[in-house]
Write a protein that binds this DNA or RNA. Structure first.
Lengths: 356, 356
DNA sequence: GTGAAAGCGCTAACAC
DNA sequence: GTGTTAGCGCTTTCAC
């Protein structure tokens, strides 16, 4: 069953000899580009089978100048959204006969980014998908040559390369409005590392507050590590002004909730907390997370969908955008009057540096 | 800063002409294989710089018969352990100048596996790392030619290909013994989809029970979806014999805990539940999960470390094994007498089909 | 040390 | 339809 017995791979010349045809005819059979007489066709196929012939991608790429591999450039492979997006790209690419190479860009440091991009460019690739979820992705985008088929996966649509996006600005805005509608006077915000000066999630949050005439607190920062949210959560719990918190993603929200309960407060009774993404564990968390669902795998698939016509030199659309859906569960609740003022008296200092 | 203005990439011939040397000399400068006179060396480097020359990996692979790309074959890209392992492989490979291609094998169906393997083999690759975490991985391994540099990443060491392993059998055994030491008469088990007839985690659990002379309940099955654990948790809660549960991974454990609390029982008061892996959220869960830490990224790095000498045709070790560390937190507690018998009277039927 | 010559295994014209 | 002839951009002898 396994064809592991071909020490040296057979070449097209071997196949041609065995089938008694010329090399280009073998090539034609393989590519289906031109019609070949049935008997020869059959002989060639038999020979291929018999020899366990496998065409050399390198030779093909060299001779044709084309290739069937696409590169994914990303800042991470294991964070939830990243991993799912990669899955989507790989899935769509594989379904279409493409192979995907992955390169991670560990920081937005110029040298690191160049090195990673060089590495990718050295391969003969047909096109690139970059995950523009963070500053590393943005930097990679800048380093890529403009003549290369390229699409970005993103949370905010902006000009430049074609991109597939989930409109997180809109999602964040709706979620913040929802919190406001629950009676909270304002909503605090914990950011994940942003892709630019300001993330779409932050923009949407700010916009909703501004529209409502609510005060805009200074956003707090977390890393991609869920535990970083815990520290922030403790700080939040000490601030009597905090009654509602919008977190940059669900994992941070889980950390924040843990931090809040560390301080003896309850979610959502004392403070409402919402996340973003609808992580598989969000519904299992206690309390179940109110969040915004982001279908990253779909984003990845759409990204490849945008790339495909470019590779085929067909007319291509520049954007594919989707509105994420709000998922209301139980981590956010109606604000009850003076719930916080009361509970803070005994729980330490109210960190003052939190209003902008 | 970006070299996006080279419509047609410069070739070595272009560089040679500009530097007034021969093509092989350029090649020598690039590979460092042979000494070149300093002045020529400098001219070549200048020309490379000026032209933005980038060698063609395809041509190089074709001419030399070697390549600097390795393939990772895996059943998933987004499950926690998989994603981390891939991260480790990519990290180590990149540090060593290798590029990695990812192919996912969606099932252990023969056609699917062959197609995926063919796809990989068609590329000119130097070697393969397969994630032998599930049946798809095991199947892929069987389909790979034996003359290809190959290592497997695994939870149980077995014969055949070189492999990097985290000894999950041992980890599961210790964890089960720990539960037993807490006074539980036996430990129930919820499996994730196993890689073979029986997973190392299941084997270790069984071994510990056998050694202790404890009854061995029939294992229950979950999928990779955390929510599948919730359903199982509910069933478990209805069975008065259940006082301790060992889950195949942390995400399932979280689901199981949720299912148990759905039924009005408490963890660990009524039932102790432990997971496996030490997922980033395990410490943040309520109750914080007692588990076994598995460093998958390290596993990936070790896997590449095993592959490297094989690629270089040096003497290579066949195995790299590590013992996972037990992490005691608060989801498992001492068994209090008759805790379950009492609590079950009001909570519905005791599903009987659970003892082997 | 360095250049000339000969491929690596395929695809792309181009005749026939 | 099908074979012949040229490369694709490198690396690898092998002289010198």
């Amino acid at each position: 069953m396994s064809n592991g017995n071909n020490v040296r791979n057979a070449t097209m010349a071997d196949v041609a000899r065995l089938a008694q045809v010329s090399v280009p005819t073998v090539s034609r059979v393989l590519s289906g580009a031109a019609r070949v007489r049935p008997d020869k066709q059959a002989r060639v196929e038999a020979a291929i089978q018999r020899l366990g012939f496998r065409p050399s991608a390198a030779a093909r790429a060299l001779a044709s100048g084309r290739s069937e591999v696409i590169a994914v450039i990303t800042g991470s492979t294991s964070n939830y959204g990243y991993a799912e997006a990669i899955r989507g790209v790989e899935e769509a690419a594989r379904a279409d006969g493409y192979t995907v190479i992955i390169t991670v860009v560990e920081s937005f440091d110029d040298d690191v980014v160049s090195a990673a991009v060089e590495n990718v460019l050295n391969q003969s690739i047909a096109g690139v998908v970059v995950l523009k979820f963070d500053r590393a992705g943005v930097a990679a985008l800048r380093h890529l040559p403009s003549d290369l088929p390229l699409v970005a996966l993103s949370g905010v649509r902006d000009t430049g390369v074609p991109q597939a996006v989930i409109d997180e600005t809109r999602g964040a805005e709706e979620l913040t409005e929802y919190l406001l509608s629950l009676g909270h006077e304002t909503v605090h915000h914990v950011r994940v590392p942003p892709s630019r000066r300001e993330d779409g999630r932050t923009t949407g949050w700010k916009r909703a507050l501004r529209k409502a005439g609510a005060p805009i607190p200074l956003p707090l920062d977390a890393t991609w590590e869920p535990r970083s949210g815990r520290v922030v959560g403790r700080d939040l719990a000490r601030n009597p002004d905090v009654t509602a918190v919008f977190c940059g993603n669900d994992e941070i929200a889980m950390g924040v909730i843990k931090g809040i309960t560390d301080q003896g407060l309850a979610v959502p009774k004392d403070i409402s907390v919402v996340g973003f993404d609808d992580h598989p564990l969000a519904e299992l968390w206690t309390p179940a997370l109110t969040t915004v669902r982001q279908d990253f795998a779909d984003l990845g698939r759409r990204g490849f969908g945008l790339l495909k016509p470019i590779l085929d030199k067909q007319a291509a659309s520049q954007f594919s955008s989707v509105h994420p859906e709000m998922i209301i569960r139980s981590s956010a609740a109606v604000r009850t009057d003076s719930q916080r003022r009361k509970s803070t008296e005994g729980s330490g200092d109210a960190s003052g540096a939190m209003s902008a």
